[in-house]
Design a protein around this nucleic acid. Structure first.
Lengths: 196, 196
DNA sequence: TGAATTTTGTACTATTCAGTATATAATATG
DNA sequence: CATATTATATACTGAATAGTACAAAATTCA
């Protein structure tokens, strides 16, 4: 064990809990005291571990992408059949968007709407996350181009998919029913894939 | 003329200017001092005319819907041809979403992402705005059902359209290029309408 | 055991912000 | 002209908030 008084919290768990607070209350709507209360730690500990509010938030976004988005995306990148792969993906991602186990909506989308015009580093990080989502889905659609509606390119389909999910996030944020979210998601599936 | 000292500002113009401030900086990100500075009035005047921050914001949303959204929607509700009507609508609405003359994104969508879990009255007002958009587009699609992709119902098409625009708002908020926004919008048009 | 080291806990500071009290200015009416 | 009335301007208050100073606690190592 290293020297000095032992830490009473785990950095990764703390990041996860902080994520949930930001996710629910937004960046501006979250006070650092809300976070220290949720994590049951003190402010100096928070600052020592993560830096100030802005730096903490940037790390929260990384955590979100690695621990919430990536596991859902992985099966899609490995699927042999686009239709089934997307179905599974939408099942998983709408569960997140609807906010049954986590706060509603996509964290990236919601925080971007709020904070984009305020803090440049946050805008850049969130914009980067969207760009990577675009690239990911574009790659998936290129790989399965034969299953795509021939009216649209893989690039456009990726933008449409990501935008649809972000729009559904807004809707979930408004308290939309499960039906509303699912109907939007399945509408995308129906029109974006080539019909047999 | 009425008795007493005359007002130095016009309520509607003030609402418009306040809208622009909220639109750019968000609800939490806007200080009342930002608004009084932009309108060149004092806080007691603001309170006398509109009430506190929350009440002012609710009126700003009404103003936005009446003066930004409604004029764009009107031609669509009167068009005889869905394809051309939607094309015109997307031309107009993407101009707003891209934020050339106004701040980027849809005000309703962006403020909902930010403030939904905080202030119940604001959430209700914004959720109501989305519900009305849904109804509007659903009505339009029902009227022109013959032009719609038969894979989807008018209800689902309306949810998909509104969600797509909200998602593109997020994207615009991230600083997306005009191409990115337009490609998403035209992708919707290509897949949502019946192909000739 | 005692010094060095790292984290924790408490208390504090400076700033920002929503909302208000009070006084003053400008107009209409009698 | 005097009074009532309405709006403006300045200054203030109390609460919240990001960030920090400093001392106490807990651990390792010599």
């Amino acid at each position: 064990m290293s020297r000095g008084r032992p830490k009473k919290f785990n950095n990764d768990q703390a990041l996860h809990d902080a994520m949930l607070v930001f996710w629910r209350h937004g960046y501006r709507g979250t006070a650092l005291d809300d976070i220290t209360a949720a994590l049951n730690i003190n402010k100096p500990s928070l600052y020592a571990a993560f830096g100030g509010k802005e730096e903490l938030f940037l790390q929260v976004i990384d955590h979100y992408r690695a621990h919430i988005l990536a596991p859902i995306a992985k099966p899609l990148s490995e699927c042999s059949n686009l239709k089934d792969g997307l179905r599974q993906y939408f099942r998983d991602i709408t569960k997140v968007v609807m906010g049954k186990e986590t706060p509603p909506g996509c964290l990236v989308a919601c925080m971007l709407a709020e904070e984009c015009c305020q803090t440049e580093s946050i805008k850049a990080k969130l914009a980067g996350a969207i760009a990577e989502s675009d690239r990911f889905f574009c790659h998936v659609f290129e790989k399965h181009k034969d299953e795509l509606n021939p009216q649209i390119t893989p690039e456009a389909a990726a933008v449409l998919l990501v935008s649809t999910l972000h729009g559904l996030s807004i809707r979930a944020r408004a308290g939309a029913s499960q039906e509303g979210i699912v109907s939007g998601a399945s509408a995308f599936l129906k029109v974006a894939l080539k019909q047999p």
